[in-house]
Write a protein that binds this DNA or RNA. Structure first.
Lengths: 100, 100
DNA sequence: AAGATATATGAATAATATTTCATATGAAAT
DNA sequence: ATTTCATATGAAATATTATTCATATATCTT
């Protein structure tokens, strides 16, 4: 299979290089959720969640479907789950940088 | 296998969320290289390459071995290659954001 | 159609990451 | 032990990205 351009890889990783977006992924691994549901679980204001979901959707990391007034978000498990599994196996103990 | 913490995923992705670091990965996919070699190929100043390699090494994305005055960097293919392959298959056409 | 709820969006501000440049370190050669 | 070449590092300047808040849009209910 042909490789993506560097730019594409960069865009993809950039999307995931954010603690909130990772938290959202963790929740969506379990089940699909609406914006308000995510907002409550993470105790963060709605617009912040919406902004995060918006970039993730742009990059096909999540999908959404309308359900009445709500928009239900789901994870693109085909792509995301195997990547996370590879990282689980990766020796991340060498990631020395701290996050406050 | 046990999942990493959100923080660990974040640190890992953050490391790859950078165009220069992706360019370095692309070169190291082919063969191992010294800092100067990378610097010449990418036509960028040495300290920039060194900074980039430094964070990648922290996160175990690359390794280095000393060779005389040179330090030869190699890619952690075990982790990186399969992740890039998954992204190759991912529908990245949805990554709409532009990069200047 | 007016009100209520759910979500999205734009833009200013705040936070974070990268670049640059000067300099330090380290290894080899003379 | 001094010079040279290769690489690393620190810190200020710059660029990029996220957060916030005000507001817009869209759907449902009455």
């Amino acid at each position: 299979m042909k490789s993506c351009s560097s730019n594409t890889y960069h865009l993809f990783f950039r999307n995931l290089a954010n603690p909130l977006r990772i938290d959202i992924i963790s929740l969506l691994k379990e089940k699909t959720m609406s914006v308000t549901e995510l907002s409550k679980k993470l105790n963060l204001e709605q617009s912040k969640i919406s902004h995060a979901l918006s970039s993730m959707k742009n990059c096909n990391v999540v999908e959404s479907k309308q359900n009445g007034k709500q928009r239900i978000y789901s994870l693109n498990k085909k792509t995301i789950t195997p990547i996370l599994k590879i990282i689980d196996k990766h020796k991340c103990r060498f990631c020395k940088e701290e996050i406050k």
